[in-house]
Structures are given as C-alpha cells and as structure tokens.
Nucleic acid binder design. Sequence first.
DNA 1: GTCTATATTTGGATAGAC
DNA 2: GTCTATCCAAATATAGAC
Lengths: 225, 225
Amino acid sequence: MAAYAQGPHHRSPSVASDPVAGEGRQLILDTAARLLRQEGYAATSLRDIAAECGMKAGSLYHHFSSKDELIGEVLRIGVERVAAEVRRAVMALPPDADARTLLHIAVRTHLTVLLELHDYTSANVRIFGQVPAQVRDAHLGTRDAYERFWSALLKRCARTGGWNPRRKLGLVRLFVINALNGSLEWFADGQSTVEQLAHELTELVLDGLVAREPVAKRARPNAQR
Amino acid sequence: MAAYAQGPHHRSPSVASDPVAGEGRQLILDTAARLLRQEGYAATSLRDIAAECGMKAGSLYHHFSSKDELIGEVLRIGVERVAAEVRRAVMALPPDADARTLLHIAVRTHLTVLLELHDYTSANVRIFGQVPAQVRDAHLGTRDAYERFWSALLKRCARTGGWNPRRKLGLVRLFVINALNGSLEWFADGQSTVEQLAHELTELVLDGLVAREPVAKRARPNAQR
DNA sequence: GTCTATATTTGGATAGAC
DNA sequence: GTCTATCCAAATATAGAC
C-alpha cells in the first residue's frame, strides 16, 4: 500500500534540479505498481491508473511516452529496491557471519520486501511473465544483476558453510528464487508470518527433509535475527 | 509440440457416441495449448488460434461458447494430465518403495510432463496467473486435487523416510511445486536434462546444502531409475 | 500539467449464408 | 461445420484547448 519508489539515483535527468518535480510522476508510478500487483498486466489499463490518480488517461502521456515505458519503470524499481534492501541487510552483518545467518537474512529480507513492503517488487514478480516480449527483454539486464548478487552470495556461503560440493549452485539459486517469488501467489497473513516462512525455507534448503542424528540436538541459530 | 489431450473421460457428453467427434475440437484445443504456452494469455487471440487451425475466428464458436470456456478446458486438461502421469508413476512403484524413490519419481515425472511432453500442462503453468479471475476461480478445484495428491505423497514419505518432524509439509509442498513449475521459465535443453534437474532438486530437498559426515559416503540412490 | 475529444487498432462475439 | 460480414467494447495513443 505504501508509496515506495526509487532513491535519488535514476531520477529523470530533466527534473533533477526541481525539489518537488516528479510528484505527479511518483503518484502515477505508485498507483501503477499497486494496480499491477493487484490486477495483473492486462487488467490494468491506463484509464484505471489515471482514475486512481484522479486524472484522465491522456494526462499520463505528459509523464510517460507509452504504457510500456511506465511498466518498464515499475519493473526496474521493483528489482532495484529488493536488490538494494537485501544487499544492505547482508552487508550489515559481520564479515565473518556464518552461512546460515547469511542465507537466512537474505531470504527474510527478500520475503519482507516482496510480501510486506513494496508494491513495485510484488508487481514485478506478478507481471513479469505477462508483459510484451519487448518490455521483458529490456528489463532482463536489471534482473540479471540481482541474480548475480545471489550467485555471489551462494558462492560465499558454500566456501564458508561446509556445503556439499556436489550441489550445483546455479540450480540452487533458481530453486530458491522460485520458491521465494512463488510465495506471492499463496502467502496470506494469518496462517504464517514472513519470519516463519523465511525460517522454514532456510532450514529446508540447508538441512533438507531427512532428519540428522541426533535430531533433537540441532539448535535454531539466528531465529530472531 | 505433440498433440496430447484428455483421455476418454471428460469427453463432452453431446458427442460421446460419435467415434470421430471432437476432431475439430481437438485440433482447436491442441493449437490453443501450444499458442498459450508460447505467447501467453493476452497475446493469444481467437483469430490467432483459428488461423493456425486453418479456420476463421467465427468458426471456433461452433465448438466453444467463449474464449474463456476454451481456456478453461486447456487449463483443466493440463492439470489432469500431469496429475494422472505422476499418480501412475508413483503407483507403479512397489508398495514398500522408500521415500527417496517416491519423491524422485514424482519430481521427475512432473518435470517430464511439464517440460517435454505436454503443451497443456506448460500452458497451464504459464497462463494461470494471467487469466481473468472468473476462469481462475472455476479452475481452482482441479488444481487443489493435484495439490492434495502431493500432500498425501509427502505425508507418506514423512512416515517412512525418517524425515525431520519439524518440517512443515504444507510449506514444503508449496516450495517444491513452485520450484518445479518455475523451471518452465528458465529450463533450456542443452545446459541440463530433465533427469539431472529432477535428481538435483530431489537431493537438495532431501539432504539440503550442508554436507553430512562423511560426505563421500553418501550413495546416489535411483539415479537412473 | 490536465482536460476534452477523437483517431486507430484490436479482439471477443454474433447473424446468417452456404 | 465453416464462411463472410459486422457489431461492439475496450484500450492505446494523439491533438489541441485551457
């Protein structure tokens, strides 16, 4: 619901000097992100977005040259925000943090931004498979950058965490990100919290389903951080 | 590419007595499934489907009362086919099959149908999040039945496989199905086979990333059936 | 920066001939 | 069972007034 957006970077050059410039643009972006998240790509028309902004459809073209440009902006902001949050959370950990903590924090932060904080991120996950090929292709580079961050993170974990060297980290990354983003389709407050979800997924991926001996001896590290 | 479809069950009652009835209908369904898989929901028009069938758009209405009815059929067949295949593969195993074998066969069969066999199943996974709410709601029961099959399978595995009782099987099911279906977006022949994928996912979910001692001693059960 | 009005396109759906 | 022809609705996009 809240109105998050990009940071001071990536602001349109033409309005960089005006302190309140982009307010109209910002409202449009926030509204578009919310509707795209709720309704999907095809069911969100420019008329709908404009109406929610208290405007008419034609007015949007003062801020964006086409629907696809607007959608592209929402997609980009969605990825860059979650990437920035996860990166920050991981970097805030001590340099010698163990693999379990690293993975748990990354998973928890991603889920928090996706499920609780950011309409842009959830809109991205929701509509990425629905947008025209041209929009998707233009956006791929931004997604790739976040995927590379995860690759590096998993590699770091594997070095320090005593991971099974037979695991193919590329597939692990795909599995984990699919599991994270897939939660958007079924997660509902009430049956479980984001914190529980993060804990479960992290333990599943690290320890697997098969019990280790002795079962009862495994501690729950970093459950609340 | 191939033209799979539903079995003798679920045939439209009005044509049940005619041996070749449904041929036109079948062609339309097969074509729709293929296009929906490739292009997505919004980008697949009735004109496109008709053209690929060598027909005109209006002719489709002799076989289906609306686009949504046609799409609903494709969705249903896609789930029922993968459910039938996975169920059959699991039932073909000996009654005392171990949990690792059960899970591996179920995962492999699902991936095979999704990625190699069945346009209907991949179309279902691809467009489920894109269709109008009305179509999706009408289809939910069919999906639920397959989800319940997985729930029962995981419960059976947990009983016989020495699984960690702290794992929440409901979440495990969601994570696994997300990971399976998510592969549709990134799987490409050449970099790895379905068999390798199934093997990796099964081992990841069962054993986790953290190496067990002694690492080298773990066998690779059922790698080639 | 927003409005009204409209051009243009597209796609689902229908009617009736054959 | 398929065709032609057409209707209708919806959506993107543009032009020009204010």
